[in-house]
Computed example of a mutant assay.
Amino acid sequence: MINFAAERAAYRQLADLLREQIAAGQPGPGDLLPSMLRISQEAGVGLGTVRRALRVLRDEGLIVMERGYGARVVEQEQPTVVSVPRGGRVRVRMPTEADRRELEIAPGAMTAVIVVTVGGRLRGTYRADRVELVAK
């Protein structure tokens, strides 16, 4: 449960607990999470703490929040595997507005992008949370 004496904020601890449950398949993809009131009561925290924890999971792409329905677990995509050849360069940066549109990154989401270049030519721009880089 939540350790209120810990240095880690209660909402982060709650997000960790919910993330673990989602990773274990309870609830599974497409399922609704319990109501915010129920999560609040079970965890012994306020609704504001629950809201902040759910925002963390939303920003990580684990859930979508639907007004009037609640929070639903998102089907997790397999990461795109990108081979980076010898001499290739990898740069991590925050997305531009064009990147957000093209890569479907929600406004305000703290998701970095990875830019891969080979020989000075752009090979691709990828969402950092949906790519696995493999050195050749």
Rank of each mutant, 00 (worst) to 15 (best):
R93T: 08
G68E: 02
V81Q: 10
Q76E: 11
V74F: 09
T96W: 14
R86D: 14
V64I: 01
V73I: 04
T96R: 05
E97I: 00
A71F: 13
E75Q: 12
V64A: 12
E97P: 02
V92Y: 14
V74I: 02
R93I: 02
I63Y: 12
R89P: 02
Q78S: 12
R89E: 15
P79N: 03
R72D: 01
E75T: 00
V74W: 04
R67V: 07
V90Y: 13
V82A: 07
R86P: 05
V73C: 05
P85V: 01
A98Y: 03
E66S: 04
G68P: 10
E97V: 08
E97N: 10
V64L: 10
V73F: 10
P95Y: 13
T80V: 15
A98H: 04
I63Q: 04
V82E: 11
V92N: 01
E75R: 02
G88P: 08
G87P: 08
R72T: 06
R67I: 01
P85Q: 05
V74E: 05
Q76K: 01
R72S: 03
P85N: 05
G70S: 04
R67H: 15
V64C: 05
R89M: 11
E66K: 05
V92E: 15
E97G: 06
P79K: 00
A98M: 00
P79D: 05
R89V: 12
R93E: 15
V74G: 01
E77R: 06
T96P: 04
G68Y: 11
T80R: 12
S83D: 09
T96H: 06
Y69M: 04
E77K: 02
R91D: 13
S83R: 07
V81D: 07
R91T: 09
E77N: 01
S83N: 08
V92Q: 11
Q78H: 08
M94Q: 06
G87W: 13
V73T: 00
T80K: 03
A71S: 14
V73N: 06
V64T: 02
E77Q: 10
V82T: 01
G68S: 06
A98D: 13
R93Y: 15
V82W: 12
R67D: 07
E75K: 05
I63E: 06
M94R: 04
V73W: 11
T80H: 10
E97K: 03
G68F: 10
P79F: 12
R86M: 13
